[in-house]
Structures are given as C-alpha cells and as structure tokens.
C-alpha cells in the first residue's frame, strides 16, 4: 500500500477524456515522477489530488482516507502541500511573514481569532520559520518584500512555505518550468537536500527529463490520460512504449 492510492480515476471535460482509468500508487518516502507529453493529463491529475477537481469516477486515498469531496485547505491539513507551476507566494508580505503564515496554519489548523496577540510572543513559531529560512539559504533575505525577488528565489520561498508545514506528501507541479539551467540545477540540489534531511514523499510532475532522472525513484508515464508504464528510471529510458509516446508526438 502506498501513501497515495489513485484507483480507476476518470475525468471528462465535455467530449475530452482528460483522465481515463488512472491507477497510481505512490510509496512512502519515495520521489515519484509523473511524466508525459503535453495534454497527457498530468495537471488534471494533480488538480484531482489537491481537491480542485472532482473526478467522475474512481477513488483517491491518502494515508488511508479519501480526499475526494474535501476542500483544498482540508486536503492540505491532511498533509499534502503543493508547489505551483508559477510560484504562489504572498507578494505583499516579507519573506519571513510568508513562512510564518504556514507555521500558524500548521499549529492552529482551524480558525483562531488571535486579534490582539503579539507576533513577538510566538517564539517557537519564529524559531521554526527562521530555521526553515536557514535551511533554504534565504535567511539573509528575511525582511525583503517577497514580490520583488527573482523567480528562482520565489520558488525557493514557496518550497520553504510548503516544507515548514512538514507535509507527508509534497506535490510539485513543474518546479523548474521556465528556469535557467543553473537555477534548475540549484532546485534539484535543494530537493535532494530536503529529501536527505527529512522523511518526505514527493510527487513531481515534470517536462524536463534531466530533472526527472536526477530525482525520481519511480516514474509513471502518462499518455492521453492513461498511465502507459510505471517503472524505475533506468527501465523507463529504454522502454519502447515511452519512446513511441514521446517521439510519436514530436515527429
């Protein structure tokens, strides 16, 4: 049994079968990549996992509980954090405040009216947030206005915001999309570092094969909304079916 079990998921948008009978099992403490050509249904699958879309049929179980019908914030509270294709951060807040919000979210979970409390009184959370910023090498940017940072830094900050929640599963939606080679390599190193430091399961959706083969323990290839193969990276490389799915499209 994996930590995330997707069984027989179908999703149809009008006449388009976006997902057809998708079965997927993500094992705990692994990095599972989901790859596939454009329009293969990768993003639809991700949106199903985080509660943004509800599939027509099938089940999605996380840690023994169904995620279907839950709101995104409830799914996050179950232990799934998500990194977006374009970094979604709190642009009006400082870097430090950006990390504090998930710290509060993690602790309070449900609504708590802390309207006259003092920020300085939250010593444990401040320490936690600062430690996180040290971990991702951003402590020197602590008081920076986060909207004014580079895209690579925003991505780094977004990952820090997800990680500080100590999620059981981290979903990454094309974490290196639009990045320069050097930034991509930095991100790979960051993810490897994170993986080495804590027990975390990651599901990565990615275009860039370099990223996928440097990180993934397991790869699922999607094509036209259906999983083609699921195997270890070294077996995927030589698989004729995968080659056909990719080359058939690009030729």
């Amino acid at each position: 049994m994996g930590i995330l079990e997707v069984k027989g998921v179908n999703k149809r948008f009008g006449g388009l079968q976006a997902l057809g009978n998708v079965n997927l099992s993500v094992k705990e403490n692994t990095v599972h990549a989901i790859i596939g050509p454009n329009g293969a249904g990768k993003s639809t699958l991700l949106n199903v996992l985080v509660g943004k879309l509800i599939p027509d049929t099938g089940s999605v179980m996380f840690d023994g509980q169904s995620v279907l019908g839950r709101k995104p914030y409830q799914i996050n509270q179950m232990g799934i954090s998500r990194v977006f294709q374009t970094p979604e951060i709190f642009g009006d807040l400082t870097v430090f405040e950006n990390v504090m919000i998930p710290c509060f979210a993690k602790r309070d979970g449900a609504f708590k009216l802390n309207a006259v409390g003092d920020m300085l009184g939250q010593k444990d959370l401040i320490e936690k947030a600062e430690q996180m910023l040290i971990d991702v090498n951003m402590i020197d940017k602590r008081n920076m206005h986060s909207a004014s940072m580079s895209r690579g830094d925003k991505r780094r900050l977004e990952m820090a915001m997800c990680l500080v929640q100590e999620p059981k599963l981290l979903l990454l939606d094309e974490p290196t999309a639009g990045m320069a080679r050097a930034d991509t390599n930095n991100t790979i190193d960051l993810l490897k570092e994170i993986k080495a430091k804590r027990d975390i399961t990651m599901a990565i959706i990615e275009h860039d094969m370099h990223v996928v083969f440097s990180l993934a323990d397991r790869i699922t290839v999607l094509a036209l909304g259906t999983p083609l193969v699921e195997d270890a990276p070294e077996n995927i490389k030589g698989n004729p079916k995968v080659r056909e799915a990719y080359l058939g499209e690009s030729a």
Partner: peptide, 10 residues
C-alpha cells in the same frame, strides 16, 4: 495578497 495560497496552506 494571495487567497489561492491561503487555501493551499490549509
């Protein structure tokens, strides 16, 4: 600043 992110922060 970003209601989307608030939702995905639990």
């Amino acid at each position: 600043s970003n209601q989307h992110r608030v939702n995905y922060t639990g």
